[in-house]
Design a binder for these strands. Sequence first.
DNA 1: ATATATTGTTTCCATATAAGAAACAATAAG
DNA 2: CTTATTGTTTCTTATATGGAAACAATATAT
Lengths: 302, 302
Amino acid sequence: MDKVMSMRVFSAVAKNNSFSDAAKKLSISKAMASKHVQNLENTLGVRLFNRTTRKLNLTDVGNAYYEKVDSILSDIDETELAISRLNSEPKGKLKIMAPPSFGAFHLSRALSVYLRKYPDVTTEIELSNRMPDLVEDGIDLAFHVGKLEDSSFVARKIASARRVVCASPYYLKQNGTPQAPNDLSKHNCMVYAPRTALNEWEFIKNNEQVTVKISGDIQCNDGDALRIAAIQGCGIAQLPTYIVGLDIQSGRLNAILEEFEPENLPVYAIYNHRKYLSAKIQTFIEFMYEQFQPEAYWNEWT
Amino acid sequence: MDKVMSMRVFSAVAKNNSFSDAAKKLSISKAMASKHVQNLENTLGVRLFNRTTRKLNLTDVGNAYYEKVDSILSDIDETELAISRLNSEPKGKLKIMAPPSFGAFHLSRALSVYLRKYPDVTTEIELSNRMPDLVEDGIDLAFHVGKLEDSSFVARKIASARRVVCASPYYLKQNGTPQAPNDLSKHNCMVYAPRTALNEWEFIKNNEQVTVKISGDIQCNDGDALRIAAIQGCGIAQLPTYIVGLDIQSGRLNAILEEFEPENLPVYAIYNHRKYLSAKIQTFIEFMYEQFQPEAYWNEWT
DNA sequence: ATATATTGTTTCCATATAAGAAACAATAAG
DNA sequence: CTTATTGTTTCTTATATGGAAACAATATAT
């Protein structure tokens, strides 16, 4: 028998000086009203009302209890209301994790708009190339580019990342421009290994996916570092356009082998659970999704 | 599912960072611990913990809830403890009702001793000849002399009241002393009608109860008034010894027809309920009972 | 690597409980 | 004297409770 309910019944009976009226107001039978008060009396070992079938009077213990019960009940109600509100309005700290090459520019760019829209939300951002442990690290939302291995969390695709092979104009002038994927074997191809090593590059040739083993003198898990290396003419890199899009647009890098481009990688927002998702997380995921509809701005530069 | 229990489980899980440990400490199965937290999450519409089988973390809603839950729980516990104590230690106001002729002297005499023994008890005394309505009048304890009609309350016999026929020496000298109950018909017999009218007096003759119709020019529901009348020589009265005991002892009144005395009347303490009787009432009943053991002092004057 | 132990969850089932309808006892009011 | 209303009790049924065991996931030990 639910003690909180018993307390509600007791309070109502005391207020109305009647079991019947209290039962009506609480939409329960008077039989239950009677049992609830008895339940309280039994657990407390105390008589709360002196009552006959016609008269009702709080005992003085009952009176002392009554003085406390209402404040306890309203404490419970207020707390539950506040908790529900906390979850239904975007509010509180949003802990986000993202790969540096994605987060440093694109995430913070979007975030600044989001935070202006929801001023009660604050953020803590961790940029890292490691795979996040949402529960252990207490992370609300993590971004991941590429296929997902683990499925112990929920993922929502928010954008796609076009991958492009590129090099600096200077490098291409010095070493020639590859015309087909296989030409890459003669070049210094810098390996981007975000979270998983990638010493193969994907392409699409005659509607068929082909992979080309590549090699070079730089392997790095940080896309921005490779971008700098490419710009400086160290070699060729296959990088997402969210890293090199602007460089290609401005001519610092040239895209090559565009006609062999592989399928875009998915960009996921991943989080812990689907049920009872808090408003701050829900609205942020939705907001990020909107940002990159119908196509992420970083994928086009012509 | 008891919400208070669910809150206790939630609090324990948060404290121990473990469902299993919390379950052990609360002596429930871990299955139940899990269900209780789910119960809370469902009623609140909120995720309280991020959890996998190996890791556990409060969500920030969970954290906000946790900050409140403990204070609510301790509020409930403290209240219940205080209420139990209130009932188990003599404390608070004791509302007593008694017939004036009994209360004005004997009750207040005993009460002054009782109150010295239990300083946390205060009293409100109503002296009245009417029959008390314990519930309506909010009376903790009432005293009644004589047979009980109503049985909607609990009664405890605490003493017996000897009844004696008496008159002033002056009256007897003027009108003669009756030698047998039947002689009373020639006398002015004052009718004492406490709560129920008594125009018959009881006697015992040859081990058999006999009643004698009496008449006189005074009928009163207040014993003390009749006592005064008797002392002043107005007539003969049959009165309890708790009223006239001292007068007979001092010679202001003479007892007559002592060999025909009827059975003593019971003196009852009556109260509302037997279960969960508060300490103040319980101890007071016991105290009063002790006062008049083995025999009430008012019944003997020789 | 493989085995073992421990975690939180789920399933299953006997048991206990909740809830209300109706009968009941007590007592005001008409 | 009848009627209506009170709080309690009884009775029955549908539901919930609670734990054992199976389960899935994942640390730790060997």
